[in-house]
């Protein structure tokens, strides 16, 4: 079924923690947001560094990432995004983009005009607070990634990322039974974790050799969750998912 504006406002409500957390008035205001839904192909830029966007992008389907390009074609991926995320939410209050956002897989996005979001958050401070909280959790995830980039071995970093993505997807109802679609290449994983694709390849083989995971045909299966989590000191506290899963 083709995504509709209703689908996008439903996703926005899920993002804000579910209908139960919102008043009738708040839900009504969200339902009337003037969103524009667009399908996008894989590896398509949604917003670029130096852009001055006039809208935010709510991911409805597919995967996206934030990234920056360096000289010699090097790329650093800052974050992976799944349906429900608004990867360029910062553009609501920071005028100029300091990084790029692109799709990694085929995707469907809903563009929400800044003006409408500003009106919504001004009229409903509770919604503004939830979005503010979201940016704080974003910061917590960045801190966890910094630890990964600076202090974890390749095996620990990959394991940590797989655990993080599973819990984020599960919280949005997009993964269960310790398996999920992971439409990322070894290059994507390497660019996120500061590893060469050679090291990513060796690491995936090592994790598979220990019967912890398999990554095949774009599907990740985790066979021993606790062992995988223990191997990288994964503590999900930084994801602050209790609100969604409550």
């Amino acid at each position: 079924m083709a995504p509709t504006p209703n689908h996008s406002t439903d996703m926005f409500i899920r993002k804000l923690g579910g209908a139960a957390r919102l008043s009738d008035e708040e839900r009504e205001a969200i339902a009337h947001l003037p969103v524009t839904v667009r399908p996008l192909g894989p590896h398509q830029d949604i917003v670029r560094e130096k852009d001055r966007p006039s809208q935010c992008c709510l991911l409805l389907e597919g995967w996206a990432c934030r990234y920056q390009l360096l000289s010699e074609g090097k790329r650093q991926i800052f974050s992976f995004h799944i349906p429900g995320d608004i990867p360029d939410l910062q553009s609501l209050h920071i005028r100029v983009m300091d990084h790029n956002v692109c799709t990694l897989s085929s995707a469907v996005v809903a563009f929400i005009p800044h003006e409408a979001l500003l009106d919504l958050t001004a009229a409903f401070p509770a919604i503004a607070a939830i979005l503010w909280r979201d940016t704080l959790v974003d910061g917590a995830v960045f801190r966890a990634w910094m630890t990964g980039l600076g202090r974890r071995t390749a095996c620990e970093a990959v394991a940590h990322l797989f655990c993080e993505l599973y819990l984020k997807l599960q919280a949005m109802g997009l993964a269960r039974d310790y398996a999920y679609r992971l439409p990322l290449t070894q290059l994507d994983l390497g660019d996120a974790l500061g590893l060469s694709n050679v090291h990513v390849n060796r690491t995936l083989r090592e994790l598979r050799g220990k019967d912890l995971i398999t990554l095949h045909g774009g599907t990740l299966e985790i066979y021993k969750w606790q062992e995988l989590a223990d191997s990288c000191d994964f503590d999900p506290a930084y994801l602050h998912l209790e609100r969604r899963t409550a």
Binding site: K74, G194, S196, V198
Partner: peptide, 9 residues
């Protein structure tokens, strides 16, 4: 100098 954070092939 013969190094790089992401090792080349």
């Amino acid at each position: 100098g013969a190094d790089d954070p992401v090792k080349p092939k």
